[in-house]
Amino acid sequence: MNRSSSHFINHVTNLPVTEAIDRVEQAVQNMGMHVFARINHSAGAESVDMPLRPTQLILFGHPLGGTPLMQAQQTIGLELPLKILAWQDESGQSWLSYPNISQLAKLHNVEVDESVTRLQDVLSKVISVVNEASH
Rank of each mutant, 00 (worst) to 15 (best):
D121H: 14
G92S: 07
L78I: 14
R38M: 09
E79H: 05
L59K: 07
L15A: 09
T13N: 04
P68F: 09
L52V: 02
W87C: 13
M70T: 10
A43W: 00
H7R: 12
V130L: 04
Q74H: 12
V129A: 13
G61R: 04
F36S: 06
D121W: 06
I39C: 08
Q120Y: 03
N131L: 03
M31D: 10
L80N: 14
H62G: 02
E79D: 15
V35D: 02
R23G: 01
D49G: 15
G77Y: 11
Y98P: 14
A43Q: 13
S134N: 09
Q120P: 06
H11S: 07
E132Q: 14
V130Y: 05
N2W: 00
Q56E: 14
M31K: 10
D22K: 06
L78W: 13
V122T: 12
L104G: 02
V48S: 07
A86Q: 12
L64A: 14
F36G: 08
I21W: 01
S97Q: 13
V129H: 01
E111R: 11
I21M: 08
P51H: 14
L104K: 12
G66W: 04
P16G: 00
M31Q: 12
E79L: 07
L15I: 04
G77A: 15
A45P: 11
F36E: 00
S97M: 06
R118N: 14
R3Y: 04
D22E: 13
L52A: 07
N2G: 00
G61P: 04
P63T: 02
D113R: 03
Q120R: 03
Q74T: 15
S94C: 12
L59Q: 11
I127K: 04
P99D: 05
S6N: 09
V48I: 15
N40F: 01
N14V: 01
K125I: 01
S42C: 04
S4Q: 07
L80K: 13
H108M: 09
I58Q: 02
L82M: 15
S5I: 02
D113W: 08
S91C: 05
K83D: 12
N30K: 11
K83M: 15
T55C: 09
I101V: 15
S6G: 04
I21P: 02
W87K: 11
S5N: 05
Q73R: 14
H62R: 03
I127L: 12
S94Y: 05
S94P: 08
Q56R: 03
I84T: 08
V48K: 13
G92R: 11
F60D: 05
V112A: 08
R118C: 07
G77N: 10
N14S: 11
A133E: 14
G66L: 05
V130M: 08
T117L: 13
D89N: 15
P63D: 01
M70W: 06
T67Y: 09
H108Q: 09
H108I: 09
N30V: 00
Q93P: 01
T117D: 15
G61H: 03
V130Q: 08
S42P: 07
A72F: 04
S47M: 06
T13C: 03
L104P: 02
Q56I: 11
V12Q: 04
